[in-house]
Amino acid sequence: MASSCCRISPVISVFVLFMFFIFSVCPVESVSFNGSDQNFHPRKESVKMKFIRDRLMKINKPSIKTIQSPDGDLIDCVLSHLQPAFDHPLLKGQKPMELPERPKGENTTSSVFKENVQLWSLSGEFCPEGTIPIRRTTEQDFLRASSIRRFGRKIRRPIRRDSSSNGHEHAVGYVSGNQYYGAKASINVWAPRVANQYEFSISQLWVIAGSFGNDLNTIEAGWQVSPQLYGDNYPRFFTYWTSDAYQATGCYNLLCSGFVQINHRIAIGAAISPISSYNRGQFDISLLVWKVIILVLL
């Protein structure tokens, strides 16, 4: 993976879901309020709500169709070229690329492919060709955030490969080297009950480049249970990226510009269904990440 902009773009595929990453700094407005503070001065409250509504206008794009999900989500079918990615200065006026060729041995018509893997699609209703499904972001999503200014982005914390990082308990399996061109994982899907909205549970594939300092680049995909981000305890398919160790770039899903989605049947951030049950049926998702060389005329 390369950190130089617009030369090498990794691609993530989840059940024939293809998305491209453009690494560049996404501007973030400087606002001093915190979402967890409930004692707002009326004027400050007004400023806060204006900030939220301005952000919602940028995130939620006009749709040609809206699908109601059983879990309460609204899935908007947005024209592909109007998705948040194309607010990025390097992508303005562009359109989604053609589907790239998959690596040898990765057959798109494989029998393991299943379209109805999310709650919103169980009715058999999908977004039409030429659009992508986007989970609508609400004011309540912002108000749950511990920091409204950093909504949709990870809390900055030291990144370690052991299980003792600031109360963040985790198990990691990894390989290191510089001759890798992709990675694949099948991840079992569960719905662990977390204690409160400030806790979360996650299972993911993580591709890293750079050191563990400020030049860290990551591409992440998997499922997560995050009441703070989504308002419930459903396991949801997510993506994340950063090119500066979570300082000023990157975000979850489509909550900032720079990430292009192609598939019109998978909604990033939507709940996965079915899920595994103890001593009963097991369900997993397959994640495939590979590097594609893309030439861009500047």
Results as ranks from 00 to 15, higher is better:
Leu119Thr: 07
Gln118Asn: 11
Gln94Lys: 13
Thr131Gly: 03
Ala85Arg: 04
Leu91Thr: 04
Ala85Gly: 10
Ala85Cys: 10
Gly93Gln: 02
Cys127Val: 12
Lys92Pro: 00
Ser121Gly: 02
Thr108Ile: 14
Lys114Val: 06
Leu90Trp: 01
Phe113Asp: 00
Ser123Pro: 04
Pro89Ser: 06
Met97Gln: 09
Phe86Met: 06
Glu101Ile: 15
Ser111Gly: 04
Lys104Val: 07
Thr109Tyr: 13
Phe113Leu: 08
Lys92Asn: 04
Trp120Met: 02
His88Asn: 15
Leu91Asn: 08
Arg102Thr: 15
Cys127Glu: 14
Gly124His: 01
Ser121Arg: 01
Glu129Thr: 15
Glu129Met: 14
Asp87Leu: 15
Thr108Arg: 06
Gly93Ile: 05
Phe126Ala: 03
Met97Ser: 09
Lys114Ile: 06
Gln94Phe: 11
Glu106Asp: 08
Trp120Tyr: 10
Ser121Ile: 01
Lys92Arg: 15
Ala85Lys: 02
Asn107Leu: 03
Gln94Val: 02
Thr109Asn: 15
Ser111Thr: 09
Leu90Arg: 04
Lys104Met: 05
Glu115Asn: 12
Gly105Gln: 08
Glu98Met: 02
Pro89Ile: 08
Glu125Leu: 02
Leu119Ile: 08
Gly130Trp: 02
Asn116Val: 03
Leu119Ala: 00
Glu101Lys: 14
Ala85Val: 07
Ala85Ser: 07
Cys127Asp: 14
Glu98Thr: 06
Pro89Val: 06
Gly130Asp: 08
Glu98Phe: 00
Cys127Ser: 10
Asn116Asp: 11
Leu90Asn: 01
Met97Val: 05
Lys92Gly: 01
Val117Asp: 05
Gln118Tyr: 05
Gly124Met: 01
Thr131Cys: 00
Leu119Pro: 01
Lys92Phe: 07
Ser111Lys: 11
Leu90Gly: 00
Lys104Glu: 14
Glu125Arg: 05
Glu101Trp: 10
Thr108Tyr: 03
Thr131Asn: 03
Pro128His: 11
Leu91Ser: 08
Phe113Ser: 06
His88Tyr: 04
Leu91Asp: 06
Gln118Leu: 10
Gly93Glu: 05
Glu125Gln: 12
Asp87Tyr: 10
Glu101Tyr: 12
